[in-house]
Design a protein around this nucleic acid. Structure first.
Lengths: 343, 343
DNA sequence: CTGTTAGCGCCTTCAT
DNA sequence: ATGAAGGCGCTAACAG
């Protein structure tokens, strides 16, 4: 079923049918109704290729994920919830959302070249942003509008939304210090992902404010995974001058840390305080409950949708590229308690 | 950059350029080389809309997910690993993979109508299959080839791949019975998802083989989530005639069950034996280690890719629709031990 | 308000 | 081995 057959069926021209279907002005109300009715009955939906070719736009937003990247194996439903809310918003604005998976054996930059050149989307949302991100340089050269979830230091004409990793780290230090902690360890990602740098910056700022000197041995880099968390827990608990608190920049590592502690007979809070990152359903099942930070995933998804569509606005002010930092709320938990021998 | 500009740049016709780029026979080797070189240099990639419109095919496979559906919030990296392997295979066959997310406020059937009619993919992989699945009826009416991950009872001309839920349940019963268990409870999904029926069938078969009468109160339906598992654990532990073993058809519920047991001072294996479903990284951190089943996600992803491309084969035998059940391997764990008071 | 028509980028058939 | 030209389905500009 194409527009010609639909038009023939109605004995009118394809031009009128097209106008009717696209809500263009200047169609007789009666004709409009007839067209819409017939389209529904015959199950007509405009062919995307024809429309895109003609319009030079696809009305589709691409969400790029790297299926091999640890940020996406983070486990819980983070992306599902965010995507759901984002998709809902985009649908209201008559945009489609497709997820473009870049597999682990592919080069992310080449992958993007193809996406850009083939013109399958009008704008992109990038994830797993690195501090220095070649994909951003690549996109900046093209004319395809894009935004990133996560800041990068690579310049370019794009918008971004980032979680307040720096604020979370700083607040975590403050909460620990308030209870008397002075030897505070931190688990950081072992790759170039941007959030690691911001988290570290917040940690350092927090220490500086409290007048605590930095001990490099307390900055521990591990893979962002359960296993990484396990290793982190073992390392921290086995250190010569055992820290009294441990801060985490990822929720998946928390389970690993708890498991390592369990094996060693260490209890979070009582022996070593733990501040996790994002509150998630799994945390409900860690005992004692981890102190962590709450994030409205639904609002984040909607905001992503708004921001990416703003990129396409002809209005210069709306279309202006902008950055936005999403705050998280501290949630008290039994994993954070005064140290046994306050300094 | 389009094919015309590339052709002009080379001072040859677009027909020749197209032939060269598509590996068609009858292009002078020298010309071929020149074209490929220029295409790389100028960053030319065929526009997808133009190509699709002309060819009537997109060289793209769609993977449909429902972002609001519990099957996808299952937590761990199941889909990421499967998608990565599938994508890799498809890329080798020069196909692209896109993920099409159907959001929770959308009607899955309407969503598919749009996907079908707009012609954005050549074939679909469906997930979260229901026992009675309207989407399958819908797709069967269309001419779009598709396959499902998970069987359904809805008829249609499609291929499917399913995990051996029935075999897993039956084997779980056998292992429990072998150790002396007779009161064996089972956690089932509280919705129409197909796997629940197969798991139940295997459970019943296992009981029948062991000559154990069915006690309906031991079939417990809970949401497929950590919280559902938590509720399940509480129910099982609190029952009048407490079961000595509990079988799970989903890995996410395991964490919840363990948490519920922990709160009640019950230890898996010692007090109530537990057989979980799929072995995953998180299980590493449940204590005592759950008995479960191993699945090669990588192989599953590749197999999905092969199966979906087979649908498009002009060779009648290769293109034949077929069903395939993927076996899982039993992995012993300390959560499965003889009951304290063997029957 | 409606009909006609050009052309988006590409591939393929036909002619050379 | 290459060039020329039609047409996939659609929308927008123009003519009526």
């Amino acid at each position: 079923m194409n527009i010609r057959r639909l038009a023939d069926h109605l004995n009118i021209s394809i031009g009128t049918v097209s106008r009717a279907l696209n809500n263009r002005p200047g169609v007789h109300p009666e004709t409009l109704e007839k067209v819409l009715k017939a389209a529904t009955e015959l199950g007509y939906v405009a062919n995307q290729s024809g429309r895109s070719l003609r319009r030079g736009a696809t009305n589709t937003i691409g969400f790029v994920i790297e299926t091999g990247h640890p940020a996406h194996q983070a486990g819980d439903q983070f992306f599902y919830v965010v995507l759901d809310a984002m998709n809902l918003y985009l649908a209201e604005q008559r945009y489609d959302l497709v997820i473009l998976p870049c597999h682990s054996a592919d080069d992310p930059v080449e992958f993007l070249s193809r996406v850009i050149a083939r013109g399958i989307v009008d704008a992109l949302v990038m994830t797993a942003t690195r501090r220095v991100d070649h994909r951003i340089a690549q996109l900046a050269k093209s004319k395809l509008p894009f935004m990133t979830l996560g800041r990068s230091e690579t310049p370019g004409n794009y918008s971004w939304i980032d979680l307040d990793f720096e604020g979370v780290a700083r607040r975590s230090v403050q909460e620990a210090v308030k209870l008397g902690h002075r030897r505070i360890a931190v688990g950081l990602p072992d790759n170039d992902v941007a959030l690691g740098y911001h988290y570290k910056a917040g940690y350092l700022k927090g220490l500086a404010e409290a007048g605590i000197p930095v001990d490099e041995s307390l900055l521990i880099r591990v893979p962002t995974s359960e296993l990484g968390g396990f290793s982190l827990g073992k390392q921290v608990a086995g250190m010569a001058g055992q820290p009294t608190a441990l801060l985490l920049c990822s929720e998946v590592t928390a389970a690993g840390v708890y498991a390592a502690f369990a094996e060693m007979g260490i209890e979070a809070g009582r022996d070593i305080s733990v501040v996790a990152f994002r509150e998630n359903p799994l945390m409900r099942f860690l005992n004692p409950a981890p102190a962590c930070f709450r994030l409205d995933l639904d609002a984040l998804g909607t905001r992503l949708g708004e921001t990416v569509l703003d990129l396409l606005s002809p209005d210069e002010e709306i279309g202006r590229r902008r950055g936005e930092i999403v705050p998280l709320t501290f949630v008290q938990g039994k994993s954070l308690q005064p140290p046994r021998n306050p300094a």
